[in-house]
Design a protein around this nucleic acid. Structure first.
Length: 282
DNA sequence: TTCAATGTTTAGAC
DNA sequence: GGTCTAAACATTGA
């Protein structure tokens, strides 16, 4: 379930570990997870690592990059002489000996450390890309919500363009806004006191401002807490993220609203469980 | 045993 | 064409 804050957390922490390491060998255990030619990246050195939407990019010194998508149950575990550092979905458990049955791809570095890509459900993938391919991939994805480029004018323009879409679904639309998933979309609506079922065209200025503010605020707050644990997610130290303690509506069906005396309801929006308080979210 | 869970893509209906 | 839903992917756990 890694969404933007979780992927950002993994990326920041991996950056400290794998920068300047040389890839010595790659072991692909499941073909469908690894797209590209192994020989294109063997011998290359890690130049940088960054996040785009919910994807992780490792750039190499030979012009190629590795693009990871953890999807719902991916996990990246880095292991060196000092121990293990893992991030992503919490299954397999962090203390499992690597490689384990969910390990799909192993990257061996020349200093004997390793990076394990684990994926329980095998939805995730890693692709070898050149710059052109990377740019092409990114061109389909919307603006990063934490970039200055994501401003009120731009937010209003997509609300106008997608007027008939429910606001919660719009927040999750990757081609418009990058990185918001099911959990944070519900949380942002709660923050803004807006029902997730409202159509974009029916939102007033005040509500749009609150949503805009909520997007930035909640994502930043979640990154500061190193992501949502919500049962599934662990950060690079193998500890659960802390944000679950701050979740206001997600997974709280039938429980009392923290803000008013209403009760949290669960409905389906775009095929996804959606949580909100029908009393204070209008 | 059945259902729901996370993210994304895709097919089909209106 | 836009927008909706459902299904698909694989697996686990309640």
């Amino acid at each position: 379930m890694p969404e933007l804050p979780e992927v950002e957390t993994i990326t920041r922490q991996l950056k400290k570990k794998i920068k300047n390491l040389q890839i010595e060998k790659i072991d692909v255990k499941v073909e469908k997870i690894f797209h590209g030619k192994i020989e294109d990246i063997v011998g290359a050195t890690v130049k940088d690592i960054y996040r785009r939407a919910k994807m992780i990019v490792i750039t190499l010194n030979n012009g190629k990059s590795l693009l990871f998508h953890l999807k719902m149950s991916g996990q990246l575990i880095y292991e060196d002489n000092n121990g293990k550092y893992g991030g992503g979905h919490s299954i397999p458990p962090f203390d499992e000996i690597m490689p384990c049955k969910h390990t799909r791809v192993i990257f061996y570095f020349s200093d004997n450390s390793k990076l394990y890509f684990n994926e329980m459900r095998m939805f995730g993938w890693v692709k070898v890309m050149n710059n052109e391919g990377l740019q092409n991939e990114f061109s389909k994805i919307g603006v990063e919500p934490l970039n200055p480029q994501f401003d009120m004018d731009w937010f209003k323009s997509i609300l106008a363009k997608k007027g008939n879409v429910k606001i919660k679904q719009l927040l999750m639309e990757q081609s418009l806004i990058a990185g918001i998933g099911n959990i944070y979309a519900s949380e942002i609506c709660f923050y803004a006191k807006v029902s997730p079922l409202r159509l974009a065209k029916n939102l007033n200025n005040k509500e749009i401002e609150m949503l805009f503010k909520g997007i930035k605020l909640i994502l930043i707050e979640a990154i500061n807490y190193q992501g949502t644990s919500s049962k599934q997610y662990v950060n690079l130290e193998g500890k659960p993220g802390n944000y679950d303690r701050l979740l206001k509506v997600y997974g709280r069906t039938g429980e009392k609203c923290y803000r008013c005396d209403g009760v949290i309801k669960r409905v389906i929006v775009a095929g996804r469980g959606t949580f909100y308080c029908s009393k204070c979210q209008k």
